[in-house]
Design a binder for these strands. Structure first.
Lengths: 144, 144
DNA sequence: CGGTATTAAGAGTCTCTTGTCTTAATATAT
DNA sequence: ATATATTAAGACAAGAGACTCTTAATACCG
């Protein structure tokens, strides 16, 4: 598993919010609605989305007509921001063999090839935004 | 974390065995010796290496002068074989968003970009063998 | 003001990974 | 045979990840 479960839930939920905001013109979507449509545990999703609001990626509002919404435009929220908030950046900085001091100075035997791929992956998640994904979403939803 | 801890230990140990076999001309290396040099728990490493012997990647021998050795030449053992035995191949087949039915037929919004990187990573681990790593090892050990 | 809808916070549970420890099996040497 | 060195196997424990549930805080509406 590349990401934790929580991280995949966060991405799915953020994407669904982005789609709903543009499609239905709503600002705040209740987490219960997201959990139902994504078939996820409401309480668990709530906790994960709290991380995104703390990271100022999303905004939340309590009470009737409350819910959660993007803190800025969908094309200003890249996947790396969500990944970083939920899972941290260790995937993109750590040695594949888990060696603590591996780096350019003291490379492990896998360092060259892995760090190259690692950077490519990172760049990919940096340039992919919720807006990018939302375009694809119109053709293929992820309730597959 | 790309791999489980056990998987990184397995790769480190297998590589050390490869190096020791060629450098010192020994056929079986005691696991205790590997655990000491790699600074890993002996019992845990033993359990992980059992997986590699079951997968016929390594061979073991009990009793005095016993230990563990490669089941074939180092250039015939690719990292993907070790990874597959310990962690399975799910990293190279699963959807980045964890969606069960994601694939060419029903792609999630990340499918195109991730499956491409996934394949590249897989090929990299297929073509990297213990012999490849052992070359690098002569310059930089991994007790860093 | 009181009821209701919603997120926030936090305790508690379940499961899987990681690691420890003990005992059994097996091979060697004397 | 007996002692010793080693892997094999399996029970057990600690920790983290993945949920579950309950209560509190907040906002709206009548």
């Amino acid at each position: 598993m590349l990401f934790s479960k929580g991280c995949t839930y966060a991405i799915r939920a953020a994407l669904l919010v982005a789609v709903k905001e543009t499609r239905e013109g709503r600002k705040f979507i209740p987490i219960r609605e997201l959990a139902d449509e994504l078939d996820l545990s409401f309480h668990f999703l709530t906790k994960i989305l709290q991380v995104l609001t703390e990271a100022e990626i999303m905004e939340s509002f309590r009470g009737p007509n409350g819910g959660i919404g993007l803190a800025r435009e969908a094309n200003k929220i890249s996947l790396i921001q969500i990944i970083s908030a939920v899972d941290g950046m260790s995937l993109f900085s750590e040695c594949a063999l888990g060696l603590p001091d591996c780096g350019e100075a003291k490379p492990c035997p896998l360092h060259q090839s892995w760090s190259k791929r690692r950077e490519e992956l990172k760049r990919m998640f940096e340039k992919t935004t919720l807006a990018t994904l939302a375009q694809d979403f119109s053709k293929n939803s992820f309730r597959n």
